[in-house]
Design a protein around this nucleic acid. Structure first.
Lengths: 224, 224
DNA sequence: GTCTATATCGGGATAGAC
DNA sequence: GTCTATCCCGATATAGAC
């Protein structure tokens, strides 16, 4: 997007930092590009020179977050042994990382529309999403989880979706310190692991076929 | 808000109709109040006289939809005997009713934020939501479904949530005639009914307690 | 009470001067 | 690369016609 001229890189960083500051204080919607520019000590036009739109600042935020979290996520996968430890670690790390910007996140989660560039399901965010799903794939990989062949390949994507649901709940969780989310996380994680454990039980056979077909439908061509 | 003077009622209706027309053509975000007013043959001020904001037009759309659908939903409940028939009927009716405005709906489903007035989870839409959930309560009422006491009371709200999830998928389903949604509906409905049937099986006991606690947490005070 | 006309403001985005 | 000026739009407000 822009070459790393030290000078320009510094200006860009200053604008980005100012944006995060303003977003945190005011919330996304109430923040204005004018104020961001002022806070960064540049003119409005300069802000638009570096970031095509207010949304572009958010994309930068996403990308930075992913880059910053990656080492911690790798460490968690390496250290954790059980699927439970790993999932708890991965998802917990996200909560921790995004906590300071929870207010900002809430403005963003508004974008469920897969056609909106900022949506976690959009084409624009595909690379971020795929990299993220890959972490879940690694978490499952040598965990000994066995599912019907029609379902197994979708597990990483389903776990990612589960995480997104938790994040969505978290973002709008007004309980002190978001305890409700953490309780929800705890309970659902146990239910999930129990579900995986009993998935091969004969009683549940009638669920396999429709579940497999369903996943094929949902992940048919486009990919929420 | 405004008394039913025939004259004023007609103007209001004209503006409302124009808004829906413009929304359908342009999409919600791209529609302007100026164009809606022009299309309705009134001045901008008149549009704002009847509708406080662009969002108010959407609220009116929601309310009108509910009022228009109510008779059909009652009929479906009266005619249908099994839970399956009823759920299929209720949810199918929604799809049918909203089909002409699917593009508009997609712009609206962007509002997941419970704090946003237009969100299906907001305080502002509570009465619509409650009335809607009541239909699901009636669908369950004499259907013979038996769940653990810690879960049973939440069933109508969960079914409503299930419906909202389907609608969300539908709204962004780009497959021809939204076949994918209808396949998804079919499969998940069967899985759901099977799940309800086997819910009391001893094997699944370990799921009751966390599930009950979880629902208590989620529906604790605020009510998504 | 119903509506027009118009002015104003804040804010996202762009064009062109420098 | 950066700034100034400008446009467009949602929203609000107001004065006044009928």
């Amino acid at each position: 997007m822009s070459q790393a001229t030290p000078k320009s890189e510094a200006t860009r960083a200053r604008i980005f930092a100012a944006a995060l500051r303003v977003f945190r204080e005011r919330g996304f919607h109430e923040s204005t590009m004018r104020e961001i520019a002022t806070q960064a000590g540049v003119a409005l036009g300069a802000a638009y020179y570096y970031f095509d739109s207010k949304d572009a600042l958010v994309m930068a935020f996403y990308e930075e977050a992913q880059a910053q979290m990656a080492p911690a996520l790798h460490r968690i996968l390496a250290e954790g042994r059980s699927l439970e430890q790993r999932l708890r670690g991965l998802i917990g790390q996200k909560f921790e990382h995004f906590a300071p910007n929870r207010a900002l996140m809430s403005a963003l989660s508004a974008h469920i529309d897969p056609n909106h560039p900022l949506s976690p399901f959009s084409a624009r965010t595909a690379s971020i999403r795929d990299a993220d799903i890959a972490f879940f794939a690694r978490a499952v990989a040598d965990s000994g989880v066995r599912l019907p062949a029609s379902i197994q390949p979708y597990l990483p994507r389903l776990l990612w979706l589960y995480q997104m649901g938790l994040m969505l709940f978290w973002v709008y969780d007004s309980s002190p310190k978001q305890v409700r989310t953490h309780q929800l996380f705890d309970k659902t994680l146990h239910m999930l692991l129990f579900g995986l454990k009993i998935a091969s039980v004969p009683l549940l056979r009638p669920l396999y076929r429709p579940a497999g077909e369903l996943l094929k439908i949902v992940y048919g061509e486009s990919a929420p």
